[in-house]
């Protein structure tokens, strides 16, 4: 059964992170995207997943990037369609325990998800205060930026956003 078309989606990218070591990867991807200034893509950085609800309105297509740990050997990054990403962040603890899965569940409950969000996870190492992001992540950050842009180009730009069917990618 074809998914029901709704309105054209605004696209919101939220890079999650902090200034502590590799935890900054989400912000760095947001910075990299900002340099390309893709049309129609709203780019924000947030410290806590709960803050993405500040910008998420019904009809907005949501893309998220955050650091994660425990990808399969050799994998440096990965993209999920929510709720598949829940496994990756299930045991994570966010600000006030509002993890990415928790916040997306809240968004769903409040009717703010018009499309299944896409979540990019980048494998990170140390996230200690007052340390810099590992320079080796620069390549991965570039790859994730390119994947986000390709995703936006192919899926969002000229297409209609559809209501999710059990949050399978629309």
């Amino acid at each position: 059964m074809p998914a029901e078309p709704v309105t054209r989606a605004a696209v919101l990218f939220v890079g999650l992170g902090s200034s502590h070591g590799d935890d900054a990867v989400g912000w760095r991807v947001a910075d990299a995207l900002l340099k390309t200034s893709p049309e129609g893509l709203m780019i924000r950085k947030a410290l806590a997943p709960i803050d993405l609800l500040d910008w998420l309105e019904p009809g907005t297509r949501l893309l998220i990037c955050d650091g994660c740990q425990g990808l399969e050997t050799g994998e440096t990054w990965r993209r999920w369609t929510w709720p598949d990403c829940d496994v990756a962040w299930k045991s994570a603890v966010g600000v006030h325990d509002f993890t990415i899965p928790g916040v997306l569940a809240l968004a769903e409950g409040l009717g703010r998800l018009s499309c299944a969000p896409e979540v990019w996870g980048i494998e990170v190492g140390a996230c200690d205060p007052a340390t810099e992001l590992n320079e080796n992540l620069a390549t991965t950050i570039g790859k994730v930026r390119d994947d986000v842009l390709a995703f936006v180009e192919s899926t969002c730009k000229d297409s209609l956003c559809t209501k999710p069917r059990s949050y399978v990618r629309c």
Binding site: D97, A105, L106, G109, L110, G111
Partner: peptide, 14 residues
Amino acid sequence: SGIAMAADHPDAVN
């Protein structure tokens, strides 16, 4: 949790 509460109290949570 607040997430669970949102189902019954969406206006308050919003």
